[in-house]
């Protein structure tokens, strides 16, 4: 463990700052997930960890391995790109399915389907 740590002082500071930043963003996002009252509010909280939490951690890993191995190491950026691309897809799918479930149960708190409202509006105009 120790022989990997002979890197200069500025790199220690930068890597430590990025690691702490990423971990605190992930922790804040997950606290939001645990504490916010409704599901649609909870859906926003973990994106803090998936956007800049992952970005800061990936950047810390890239700086660390670039400095220790003496050559540019950029393969961690794959994780960053992958998480950035996939998180909106999964969360929008989850929100859509939740909206579908709430509407199917007739919950009055969620807005009605937008495909029904123009038809309901156009009927009195035509009549």
């Amino acid at each position: 463990m120790n022989e990997a740590f002979n890197l200069p002082f500025w790199a220690e500071i930068v890597v430590s700052a990025f690691v702490l930043l990423g971990a605190s963003l992930a922790l804040i996002g997950t606290i939001g997930l645990a504490r916010l009252p409704t599901f649609f509010e909870r859906l926003h909280a973990p994106t803090l960890g998936t956007s800049w939490g992952t970005g800061a951690m990936v950047m810390a890993s890239m700086i660390f391995f670039t400095v220790t191995s003496g050559r540019p190491v950029f393969h961690e950026i794959l994780i960053g790109i992958f998480v950035t691309v996939t998180t909106p897809v999964t969360l929008m799918l989850l929100a859509q399915s939740t909206l579908h479930r709430e509407r199917a149960e007739g919950n009055p708190d969620v807005p009605a389907s937008i495909s029904k409202t123009p038809a309901a509006d156009s009927d009195p105009k035509e009549a």
Partner: peptide, 20 residues
């Protein structure tokens, strides 16, 4: 859906833990 969201967050946090 809360459970699914919790599982997704657990995946992301464990991924960050592996990077650490």
């Amino acid at each position: 859906q809360d459970r699914v969201l919790g599982l997704d967050t657990l995946y992301v946090n464990s991924m960050l833990m592996l990077l650490t």
